[in-house]
Design a protein around this nucleic acid. Structure first.
Length: 401
DNA sequence: CACCGTTCAGTTGAACTAAGCAACGGAATTCGG
DNA sequence: GAATTCCGTTGCTTAGTTCAACTGAACGGTGGA
């Protein structure tokens, strides 16, 4: 047994790996050149260029669906600016914040607290007035030397939909309060119509410039995949047609490049695991399934207990009927709570939780009117049937059922 | 048949509450002289 | 007497609750053709 294991490891090491540099396919990788985004790069670069003269660049808004390169382009440009500014000894600071992350930047207080922490100031998680946190932040950045800050707010639409646009107003107002310091905001939004229901004053001051990132088409995705795979894999390990199929998959999903890359990476991992010398088309199908399963499980595991109970109820009710509504779920939910020994929340809250689960894409909840028989949310599962058993098992385990 | 008020089962927004936390200030304790 | 520690109070955020207004199409009744 032991012998077998060490043999296995030895064999593993002598095997020719498919990957040379797996990082190139991972989400946070910023490549040296980004294809099919020349226009956006040029524009964003020229908008942000004044930073290198220590002049405040205009505020910018970037729109585009997920995986269209918004974050990638921004990070590429800002890191270049940062490098250059370092060489020239400029006091330039770049803050990147993802507003979607729960418990990090999903309220005004937490956003400011997190910003302040970026400047090495400790801010308690609660207890202070938000106004006070603003003061702390201002004090932290507005020291004697002149300074320029580029604030990148990713998924800013999430923040605004949760807490309203007052935050943005306060942010823009901040500049007038700062004496030696200037602050530019780069807002990144997945929602193209985001600014429509924004206070016009905020809109005009915050989106002085706007950039739209169109989705990639299949051909462009292929280019990107080829480029990255050239870095990531050894030569000639990809069966012909694999790239094309990956691209096609992702193009179907509104041209999401991140997804395409992940698909290719996981395909590679699966191929390697199955001792295949090359990545074959069948690995893509396996990868597709695995990604779906993994992301869902990942999201579910990190959900608070109450959400898990709610989801479990939905799952259970769903297996019996195909059209299910909030009321059914809530009844079942209360049962489960009793079984688990958890305090059951009100229906009001469950309604919100269902909406949250919908946002994660695990379920689809649609408000329907059933005429005289009321108005409710119609809930359907948003995940493939193949992941159901595993999901149910995970939930059961997490809840101790 | 077309029109219209009623009705249901939640949805949705707003005000409110409890739990945790921080800061502030005064009281109690400690300490060195 | 000064410095330090220790509560108690006040005021904040946040998650969740309570309250109440609102919703929108099917139902069922009415009236007109």
């Amino acid at each position: 047994m032991k012998k077998g294991l060490s043999n296995f490891f030895e064999e593993y090491l002598t095997k020719n790996p498919l990957f040379v540099n797996k990082k190139a396919l991972q989400g946070n990788f910023t490549p040296d050149n980004i294809s099919h985004r020349d226009e956006q790069i040029k524009q964003l670069a020229s908008i942000l260029a004044p930073a290198l003269r220590m002049e405040k660049p205009s505020n910018v808004f970037l729109y585009g669906k997920t995986g269209t390169g918004k974050t990638c382009v921004t990070q590429y440009i800002t890191s270049q600016i940062f490098d250059l500014s370092k060489k020239k000894n400029l006091d330039l600071k770049i803050c990147y914040l993802n507003c979607k992350l729960k418990k990090v930047a999903d309220t005004e207080y937490r956003l400011m607290a997190e910003l302040a922490r970026n400047f090495d100031v400790e801010v308690p998680a609660t207890g202070l007035p938000t106004e006070e946190v603003y003061k702390i932040f201002v004090k932290a950045i507005d020291s004697n030397e002149k300074k320029l800050i580029l604030l990148i707010l990713d998924e800013i639409d999430q923040l605004v939909s949760r807490v309203g646009d007052g935050v943005l107003y306060n942010l823009t107002r901040l500049n007038s309060e700062l004496k030696n310091c200037e602050l530019s905001v780069i807002g990144i939004s997945n929602d193209l119509l985001f600014t429509d229901d924004l206070d016009p004053r905020i809109k005009s001051s915050l989106s002085e410039e706007e950039l739209v990132f169109p989705p990639y088409n299949a051909i462009q995705l292929q280019d990107i995949l080829r480029e990255r795979s050239a870095i990531a894999f050894r030569e000639n390990v990809i069966e012909s047609g694999v790239i094309e199929k990956c691209a096609a998959y992702a193009a179907r999903e509104h041209g999401d490049a991140r997804r395409a890359l992940e698909l290719l990476r996981v395909s590679g991992e699966l191929a390697e695991r199955s001792n295949s010398e090359i990545i074959k088309i069948k690995h893509i199908d396996e990868a597709e399934e695995k990604i779906e399963k993994d992301t869902v499980l990942d999201v579910v595991k990190t959900q608070p207990k109450q959400s898990q109970i709610a989801l479990y109820s939905i799952l259970k009710v769903c297996t019996n009927e195909n059209h299910i509504f909030t009321g059914d779920v809530y009844d079942y939910y209360k049962d489960i709570c009793r079984q688990v020994g958890a305090k059951s929340l009100t229906q009001r809250r469950i309604s919100d939780i269902i909406a949250e689960l919908d946002m994660f894409g695990i379920i689809h909840a649609r408000v329907v009117s059933k005429g005289r028989y009321g108005r409710t949310k119609e809930i359907t599962l948003g995940i493939p049937l193949s992941t159901l058993p595993k999901l149910e098992e995970t939930l059961k385990e997490g809840l101790g059922l």
